[in-house]
Nucleic acid binder design. Structure first.
Length: 100
DNA sequence: TACATGACTCCGA
DNA sequence: ATCGGAGCCATGT
């Protein structure tokens, strides 16, 4: 069964609202939707067609580190490019989390 | 239909 | 701080 259209729409809407220079997690996004799980948010990001306009790179793991996937390096660059910093252990400081 | 996989998390050892 | 296992559920074979 495919990800329900309504949930997918909510995921996209939320990701689109993450402010530049800030990040959020798969789990947080899942909680803001009705029925999605962190895993599904990851699946949704993985399925994004090339050329879309969503700031997918602003979505990281609950550990505040970039998840392990094929575009991880690119994601890191994109974030650095807009001012997101990483500590010695590769984690994004808590104050850059969104919301709050 | 059945089993494996994955851009996840949580929790306990 | 790490690590393994379990729960998760859409997808891929």
């Amino acid at each position: 069964m495919a990800i329900r259209a309504q949930i997918l729409e909510q995921i996209y809407t939320i990701v689109a609202q993450i402010p530049p220079g800030r990040v959020t997690t798969y789990g947080r996004i899942a909680q803001m939707t009705e029925g999605a799980t962190a895993r599904l948010v990851g699946t949704a990001m993985r399925q994004l067609p090339t050329g879309h306009d969503l700031p997918w790179y602003r979505v990281i793991g609950a550990s505040r580190r970039i998840a392990d996937h094929g575009g991880a390096q690119r994601q890191h660059e994109q974030l650095r490019a807009e001012g997101v910093v990483f500590d010695a252990s590769g984690r994004v400081p808590m104050h850059l989390m969104w919301p709050e």
